[in-house]
């Protein structure tokens, strides 16, 4: 069978209407999405075999990021830091409990090592390839190339997300794999980044999980 017979997850969406997004994501072949917009408390009619998980995008000064991550630890909420300058990246990778560092700029070997020690996944924001054009997109592709180089060397977990704000930003898993091939990701890496690794993070977030290797059955 094809490599695309897995459960796929998009780990960063912030739609205005999660219900519509869920229906569309289901049609596109996803099994679940993570919603970071605040309106997740309202009742949503979920399609069959589809789940919405709550996530938080931490936006704070580098000095405050550590505190925020500490607060979210063991809460079951998926925490994401949008990478940027060196200071933000460093604060993010040095704190235990963060799940995803999205699209860090100027990633280096020190940061990569710290991320691998704290099992933090590196997110690739494919939404930026869809939305940007020209110079800005070239810059993003270059950052992604550096990130994938470090991720491979330090065996970091990689995650592909669409960062979609509406159903029109959503792309199906095969399209995401095609987009990720633009910066040199192989097809099997892309499939893992949308299925195996998200499932691993969800498992780590479940209340039965104690520590790596210890789990309440």
């Amino acid at each position: 069978m094809s490599q695309f017979d897995h459960k796929f997850y998009d780990f960063l969406t912030h739609p205005d209407s999660p219900g519509q997004m869920a229906a569309e994501a289901k049609r596109y072949g996803y099994s679940g999405i993570v919603v970071t917009s605040s309106k997740t408390n309202e009742e949503i009619l979920l399609p069959e075999d589809f789940s919405i998980y709550k996530g938080i995008e931490i936006q704070a000064k580098p000095s405050r990021i550590r505190e925020q991550i500490k607060k979210l630890k063991n809460s079951g909420i998926i925490s994401i830091v949008r990478g940027g300058e060196e200071e933000i990246n460093r604060a993010a990778v040095e704190s235990v409990g963060l799940d995803i560092l999205l699209q860090p700029l100027e990633f280096n070997n020190v940061l990569a090592k710290a991320a691998s020690d704290h099992s933090i996944a590196i997110g690739f924001n494919l939404g930026s390839l869809i939305k940007l054009k020209g110079d800005a997109r070239i810059r993003e592709l270059n950052y992604m190339k550096t990130n994938i180089k470090h991720a491979r060397k330090y065996n970091l977990e990689m995650i592909l997300t669409g960062d979609s704000g509406s159903v029109y930003d959503l792309r199906s898993p095969r399209e995401m794999a095609a987009l990720s091939s633009l910066f040199g990701m192989t097809q099997s890496e892309a499939v893992d980044a949308m299925s195996a690794i998200p499932l691993g993070i969800l498992r780590r977030k479940s209340p039965n999980y104690v520590q790596e290797g210890i789990e309440i059955l």
């Binding site: 390839l129 869809i130 029109y168 930003d169 792309r171 095969r174 399209e175 095609a178 987009l179 633009l182």
Partner: peptide
């Protein structure tokens, strides 16, 4: 490549 090109249309 064609798939990627189509996916980039928003």
């Amino acid at each position: 490549e064609t798939r990627a090109g189509l996916a980039c249309i928003n």
